[in-house]
């Protein structure tokens, strides 16, 4: 039996279905991995409540997120990018990032609501010293 050639009919010679599956897989992979990356940067904390909070703008590139945990151990308190960090190292990191971003760096302080001010104050002083003027506090709405 002579099988007519597909090409002469103007159709494709192969199935599109697996291709579409692969495209969907890739899309979903990149979506999930970006979501997981964001979750690593923003730890789950009990943030303070505030009524005058604004929606954050999604400009992720020029931001350093500093998570301040309510740990008692001073070494485990400040976490940046999934890594525990001490205040001196934080000063270097903020300085480096600030120079890299040419002064447009935003430092977001995500502090648990039970963290005493004495832990957060050095972070703010460091930001002011390194020339970072855009410091924001993460809160939840009340």
């Amino acid at each position: 039996m002579r099988v007519p050639s597909n090409l002469s009919r103007g159709g494709l010679g192969f199935n599109m279905t697996p291709m579409i599956d692969v495209v969907f897989l890739l899309i979903i992979f990149f979506l999930v991995s970006s979501h997981m990356a964001k979750q690593e940067v923003e730890l789950e904390l009990d943030l303070p409540e505030a009524g005058s909070g604004q929606r954050p703008d999604e400009d992720d590139i020029r931001r350093v997120v500093v998570n301040v945990l309510p740990e008692q151990d001073a070494a485990a308190r400040i976490v940046v990018g999934g890594r525990q960090i001490v205040t001196e190292e934080l000063a270097q990191l903020i300085g480096f990032e600030s120079r890299r971003k040419a002064g447009h760096l935003e430092v977001r302080i995500r502090a648990d609501r039970t963290v005493p001010y004495r832990v957060v104050e050095p972070i703010m002083v460091t930001c002011a010293r390194e020339g970072v003027w855009k410091v924001t506090f993460s809160v939840v709405g009340d």
Partner: peptide, 10 residues
């Protein structure tokens, strides 16, 4: 809960 921010002006 969705997070919001409080900006400061240093």
């Amino acid at each position: 809960m969705p997070e919001e921010i409080l900006p400061t002006r240093f």
